[in-house]
Design a protein around this nucleic acid. Structure first.
Lengths: 110, 110
DNA sequence: AATTAATATATAATAATCTTATATATAATT
DNA sequence: AATTATATATAAGATTATTATATATTAATT
């Protein structure tokens, strides 16, 4: 299980990337997918997820489509046109971050 | 310049690793070193650094030696015995985090 | 048929962590 | 003499995550 401190600041990027890869997803589905892709190492809690989704929507990066599965409301999230390019930038930014940090934290030469 | 969001949770690890590699360092020196190693991409602000240092000391991971350079107080920080093994764990944890996230955020196969 | 587990969305209180602004002071350089 | 670099530190505010809680439907099990 990954230290939660490290996840700070990356949840948004994870959500955006999943939507970029899978077209449209609903909240519960996102938490399952993250768990699956990370082999159970990342547990995205709802208390973290929903505020992130609402913020992304308020900022215009994603949009919501509501559907009914029987009596149950299901909210599908997908990237807006703007959100698509923004996601690409965020993912690049993450890998740039990793490269820099990897250098800073690299093992000391003996 | 790296998005500051991404740094959340890693500042502590950076500070610990620098102390592990350099023996003992003072606050200002740490900010310079981080700037140097990251080619100016990571700017460790004092408002973030000092609380981290004080917390690490309160938790017993690092200790302080005070010296006077002329009239100026200089506080040297170094790892405690306990802090040394803790640092190794934290660095491992970071690379584990990177591996997992790299997989989750990997480019989609075409 | 009743209970439990899984699915599904959401908010509130709290905690942790970082940014920005501010304060203070010494030493070196121009 | 003035400016820049060195040096430590706190406080107000913002952001973001955790934990706890609430609600409800559907599927699976006993």
């Amino acid at each position: 299980m990954i230290s939660n401190d490290l996840l700070k600041g990356t949840l948004r990027t994870i959500v955006l990337k999943l939507l970029a890869d899978n077209g449209r997803m609903y909240g519960y589905e996102i938490t399952r997918k993250v768990e699956e892709l990370s082999s159970g190492k990342i547990m995205l809690t709802f208390g973290a997820l929903y505020p992130v989704l609402h913020k992304l929507e308020a900022d215009g990066h994603i949009k919501i489509d509501i559907e009914y599965i029987g009596k149950r409301v299901r909210k599908y999230y997908s990237l807006t046109e703007e959100g698509r390019s923004w996601t690409a930038r965020k993912v690049d930014e993450f890998f740039d971050f990793v490269n820099t940090l990897t250098y800073v934290l690299k093992p000391t030469p003996a």
